[in-house]
Design a protein around this nucleic acid. Structure first.
Length: 283
DNA sequence: CGCCAGGGCCCCA
DNA sequence: TGGGGCCATGGC
């Protein structure tokens, strides 16, 4: 039941795409990645130009999920502004943003605040284990907003969400009641969608930008987390701007102006490069 | 023990 | 308006 999806290896790299920190529900064992997407447990492996798919999925599903419809060379050209990003897009060529489910993405990044990636992964696993449906042994769907809206706080606390517990429940109640309509949100411009998301407790500029970038088609979102802040401060990428740019909000504005309409892609490459290799000496 | 991790919120000058 | 303290949790 496994089949092969042919692609150009320089235009897609499965390992970079799933390892770069944008998704939290994939695990790697040997050459194979296993993850839960919607109600599917998916197993994937890449060998050069062959993406081996051990799941009942359509090519269209994979095209959509992995944004294979994005013109990567064109995006590279538009964001390639300096040596640092040039190195990142060559070294990590084929890394693509993923189209995530809006609801799962929102909660996932609400759970990401001031936490390491393994901790975030653990919270999402526990949340799915306690409140999702078991799809196959050990793999659970992400809980619906209705389920989380009705969960009591003591049960939610078992998922080790810390101070985020109340915020998650409140967001779930907003989504379940229709007060927060993610289907409407997706049609709004970046600025207005961002303002709406930030009205949720526990969603600031960074979390909103992650959700907009990874689930709402807003390639112009530029999430400024601790790594991006350190990169901007360390390299002084743009001296003229750097003088007056010290806080997170300003750094987001800077990223949007500097890298342009696909700055979200630039952000992901810089973020992954920094996480993998730390600071680099480029000269 | 302290510090940091894909932060956000509240308070206060 | 912006900077510091605080918020749970886990890893080092």
């Amino acid at each position: 039941m496994s089949w092969t999806y042919r692609l150009k290896p320089e235009l897609f790299d499965l390992n970079y795409t799933l390892d770069c920190g944008q998704v939290f529900r994939w695990g790697q064992e040997g050459d194979w990645w296993t993850g839960v997407v919607g109600d599917h447990v998916i197993r994937l492996s890449q060998d050069q130009d062959r993406l081996i798919v051990d799941s009942k999925l359509s090519p269209e599903f994979l095209t959509r999920y992995f944004r294979l419809d994005d013109n990567l060379p064109s995006i590279y050209e538009s964001i390639n502004r300096d040596l640092l990003i040039d190195r990142a897009i060559h070294k990590y060529r084929g890394l693509r943003l993923i189209r995530q489910d809006p609801w799962e993405c929102l909660i996932s990044y609400m759970l990401s605040t001031a936490s390491s990636i393994p901790t975030i992964q653990k919270r999402i696993f526990l949340l799915s284990q306690f409140f999702g449906q078991e799809l196959e042994p050990g793999y659970f769907s992400f809980p619906t907003s209705e389920t989380l809206a009705n969960a009591d706080l003591a049960e939610l606390d078992k998922c080790k969400l810390g101070f985020r517990t109340q915020n998650v429940k409140a967001a779930a109640q907003a989504a379940a009641s229709g007060e927060l309509d993610l289907d409407v949100l997706i049609r709004l411009e970046y600025k207005y969608a961002r303002e709406r998301l930030m009205r949720l407790r526990g969603v600031g500029e960074k979390v909103a930008d992650c959700v907009l970038l990874f689930a709402f088609e807003k390639m112009e979102a530029f999430p400024v987390d601790t790594h991006i802040r350190q990169i901007i401060q360390h390299y002084h990428i743009d001296d003229s701007y750097f003088e007056t740019c010290t806080n997170m909000s300003c750094m987001g504005d800077w990223g949007r102006e500097y890298f342009g309409q696909y700055c979200g892609y630039a952000q992901e490459y810089l973020y992954y490069q920094k996480r993998m290799e730390g600071f680099l000496s480029l000269y």
